[in-house]
Design a protein around this nucleic acid. Structure first.
Lengths: 227, 227
DNA sequence: CGGCATCCTCTTTGATACTG
DNA sequence: CAGTATCAAAGAGGATGCCG
């Protein structure tokens, strides 16, 4: 990227990470940890392969990622964030928080990946019953599934699945997102087609209080979307 | 900007503000408040005029800024952030914080504007003596000057000057920045040519403790730069 | 001046095909 | 799996001109 040529730390930051796709690569590495080239490509639908290769090189040159040969059983090169790269998390989170307002109107051509539930879950879900037994929730949207582990007052997210989840939500990402962020109630998302199977009372434990819910977005806006 | 087409709030945010120059326009409006077209152009050295006009239009269409006819004596149209636009402040601040690491190695062609001292000052300076009388510090670097008002435990920054400042720092932006962020001591910046006139004891009141200082950047790195 | 619009050139991106 | 090669289209940068 051409430098802005300004002696300002915001401009300097954008000199490094302001290129198209760059912060999304960092997002993937933050959400998924070390990634193969192919993992990144899958997590960044729409990127041209040459551009991904370019960006990884640039990030490496800037000291934000490193490539390392993984030992067997992986036996391939993994890209992972350096400390400087990981320190971009507040930037990516701030963008993710600000962008929630746009999640109510997805484009019909938008694609989805399971790891993208991570920030909504981190931002909004809480374990309000720390003494209750550990529990797991599986989110199934599109081809991917995401696991939320609730235990001892903490909530953790990861991609993948779990043998016997206590609760499974299956359906459109938009509905899962609206439920997690508190924009729609359990009754509303159910009416709109979200399938809830298992221990639904777990939702009372983790869903945000009304005052912590994200404002805005009437049901009418949400029902027209494809996702 | 072409949409990333991803149902992820980070990607959605970058769909709106990920274009080149866009976040720097928001930075200027955050730092300076409502701006005329010319103010923005001056605060964004290097931007092409057509691009600035385009970006303002795009920001307006996205609902992040509004244009309003200012009453006399200004008598021109002012661009200011809407609430949604102002909510980008955490994003800009996170970038500004992350980018401080690059302030120790300015490019020889970098330009500077006084309002860009705002975030370093906000991040690092404190009023450690709230009961002391109000005081003002003027920073003079290049053509611009910036005022720091210290009073009642609070520190505020603005562009402009003040009739009789208690303390004036005059010299290279890099040295003022290094002093403010705690990367160099008063003795070091003085040796490197920063002029300090007035009540130097004010610095003890506002400069960060060593444990709050920004790490890194030996004096040797800083002395070679032009700015 | 302030606030743009136009024209032209150069760079970056996106889409696709191909390779070790 | 992990890229490179190619090429058309879009976007950015710079100069200049126009208008109240």
């Amino acid at each position: 990227m051409r430098s802005y040529g300004q002696y300002c730390s915001v401009a300097k930051a954008l000199d490094i990470v302001g290129d198209r796709w760059t912060l999304l690569i960092v997002r993937e590495l933050l959400l998924r940890g070390a990634c193969r080239y192919t993992d990144l490509k899958n997590g960044l639908p729409g990127i041209a392969t040459n551009l991904l290769a370019d960006r990884i090189r640039e990030l490496e040159a800037a000291g934000l990622v490193r490539r390392e040969e993984a030992p067997p059983p992986v036996a391939t090169t993994l890209v992972h964030l350096t400390e400087a790269g990981a320190e971009l998390e507040p930037v990516v989170k701030a963008l993710g928080w600000w962008g929630i307002r746009y999640m109510a109107q997805p484009a019909d051509t938008d694609v989805f990946r399971g790891q993208w539930f991570t920030y909504p879950v981190e931002f909004f879900l809480r374990d309000r019953d720390p003494d209750a037994p550990a529990a797991s929730v599986e989110l199934r949207a599109g081809a991917d599934s995401t696991v939320i582990e609730v235990s001892g007052g903490e909530v953790h997210v990861r991609v993948g699945s779990v043998p016997r989840p206590d609760l499974v939500l299956t359906g459109r990402p938009l509905l899962i997102n609206a439920l997690v962020t508190g924009q729609l109630s359990v009754a509303e998302v159910t009416a709109l087609g979200l399938e809830i199977s298992g221990d639904a009372s777990l939702l009372d434990r983790i869903l945000p209080d009304p005052e912590d819910a994200y404002p805005n977005s009437p049901e009418s806006e949400l029902s027209g979307a494809r996702l």
